[in-house]
């Protein structure tokens, strides 16, 4: 596979690369383009590849004249909270799966796999009723609890794969050296799992950041809305200000892209670790 390819093949390959690249980036480019196009040009120059004028007015107004900051803050709170709690819970469960053999292990793994397969929307009604019964509608905490439960199974498999990559000998050596199991975990295993913990945090953050349907169901008060819900209400509440909406979209993209860059090199490891989920 290393000999010099025929020129036709080389051209074809680079054409294919270019095609993939433009397919992947074009919608994002368009998002950015509309966000920086002045309002009055959006319709007249709708299909131009390049706007004739740039403006950051959309960003300014979306930040200062709408509830954007509140949505953004809510989403940040929910996503960070979910990511932190999920990672903690999943680290424990992943550690147990990786290091112990115990009665019911296969059953638990099976249950976790099943939760990855049944329609989550199936439980949207019961969840709504339970949370309404607890008086927890419009509460960001209830969102965190629900999202955490949704993400724990996948995050557990992910963490398990990271723990599996750390030789069991290390904590046994630590225990021979006088550590309790928890000390071994804290002093030896934890520092070695930091990248894994980071990747899991990133995955869960991105998932929570873009969750829409449950947030839509459970949140109806404006001040508790997360970003996706808030953004959708842009459409219905005001006369649709597309420029502002796209500017908000661009801003919403920033955190997930940051996390994405960080977790990129763990993607393969995560996806091949037995659990396969988007």
């Amino acid at each position: 596979m290393t000999h010099s390819p025929k020129p036709v093949l080389a051209v074809g390959k680079y054409a294919a690369l270019l095609a993939y690249l433009s397919f992947a980036l074009f919608p994002l480019y368009w998002l950015l383009k509309i966000a920086v196009t002045p309002d009055q040009l959006i319709y007249t120059e709708g299909t131009n590849l390049w706007p004739s004028e740039f403006t950051f007015d959309n960003f300014r107004s979306v930040v200062f004249q709408t509830d954007f900051l509140s949505y953004f803050g809510n989403s940040l709170y929910v996503s960070l909270g979910t990511a932190a709690v999920t990672t903690l819970v999943a680290a424990g469960a992943g550690y147990a799966f990786s290091r112990f053999n115990f009665a019911g292990k296969r059953l638990l793994i099976a249950v976790m796999l099943i939760t990855q397969m049944f329609p989550l929307l199936m439980i949207i009604a019961p969840i709504y009723k339970i949370i309404a019964g607890l008086g927890m509608l419009n509460s960001l905490t209830s969102l965190i609890v629900v999202y955490t439960a949704f993400n724990v199974p996948f995050a557990t498999f992910l963490m398990q794969s990271f723990f599996d990559g750390i030789p069991k000998d290390l904590e046994e050596a630590a225990m021979m050296d006088g550590c309790s199991r928890f000390q071994a975990l804290y002093k030896v295993i934890f520092p070695l799992t930091l990248p894994g913990l980071g990747a899991t945090l990133g995955f869960v953050f991105t998932a929570a950041w873009s969750e829409l349907l449950f947030a839509l169901m459970l949140i109806s008060k404006n001040e508790a809305m997360t970003f996706p819900v808030g953004l959708l209400t842009f459409v219905s509440k005001f006369s649709v200000d597309w420029g502002q909406m796209m500017a908000a979209g661009v801003l919403a993209l920033v955190p997930s892209c940051l996390f994405f860059i960080f977790i990129q090199r763990y993607l393969v490891q995560g996806l091949t670790s037995g659990a396969v989920k988007g």
Partner: peptide, 17 residues
């Protein structure tokens, strides 16, 4: 990194775009 980027885009944003 660039071709994998769509995966990181929140679903509602891809839908809107």
């Amino acid at each position: 990194a660039l071709v994998f980027l769509p995966w990181a885009v929140p679903t509602f944003l891809s839908a809107l775009t």
